[in-house]
């Protein structure tokens, strides 16, 4: 199959790769670029484990072709911490045990960050609806929702 040459930006860094025309962004990230933070839970858009942002908008990497990233900006969980400094959401998830096996965690973190970037003061209902496309088989969700609410409150305080 003729490969497609893609020039894109991933976590702020220019990136080039070759991919198959029908290859998903998730497969390209994981298998070609060594970015295995985004997980494949379902490959059909239902679980959110593959969440990334495309030009700042939250999307499922499993429902996007790698070729579509040409000329666009992708962010993945690998771009969330700044060096050794975890993002406040990452710290809070660890502190409040908002994860168990961790498979869903990169997706929840990317999705939660996209929410707080847009709305620093969401209600619990808004958080629950925003994260409805992220499934977790372990935590029962409550700790995750509380971690997002608590982080939002702390980030608002820090911003004052």
């Amino acid at each position: 199959m003729t490969k497609i040459h893609v020039t894109t930006t991933i976590n702020g860094e220019p990136e080039e790769f070759l991919c198959d025309p029908n290859e998903t962004m998730l497969d390209a990230l994981r298998n070609r670029l060594g970015l295995t933070g985004a997980k494949e839970g379902c490959a059909t858009g239902d679980c959110g484990a593959c969440s990334i942002t495309l030009d700042g908008t939250l999307v499922c990497a499993c429902l996007m072709l790698a070729a579509e990233s040409d000329g666009h900006e992708i962010t993945t969980i690998e771009g969330m911490a700044e060096g050794e400094n975890l993002h406040p959401l990452q710290t809070k998830f660890l502190e409040s045990a908002a994860l168990q096996c961790g498979i869903c965690t990169p997706g929840f973190l990317i999705a939660a960050k996209a929410l707080l970037d847009e709305n620093p003061d969401p209600t619990e209902t808004e958080v629950r609806f925003w994260l409805a496309g992220n499934l977790c088989r372990c935590t029962g969700y409550d700790k995750i929702i509380r971690a997002v609410m608590d982080t939002a409150a702390e980030m608002r305080e820090a911003a004052q």
């Binding site: 858009g45 959110g48 969440s51 495309l54 908008t57 939250l58 999307v59 499922c60 429902l63 996007m64 999705a111 996209a114 929410l115 609806f129 925003w130 994260l131 409805a132 496309g133 992220n134």
Partner: peptide, 9 residues
């Protein structure tokens, strides 16, 4: 339609 992720597209 779908989730926030699906609405992104």
């Amino acid at each position: 339609i779908g989730s926030t992720q699906v609405q992104g597209r």
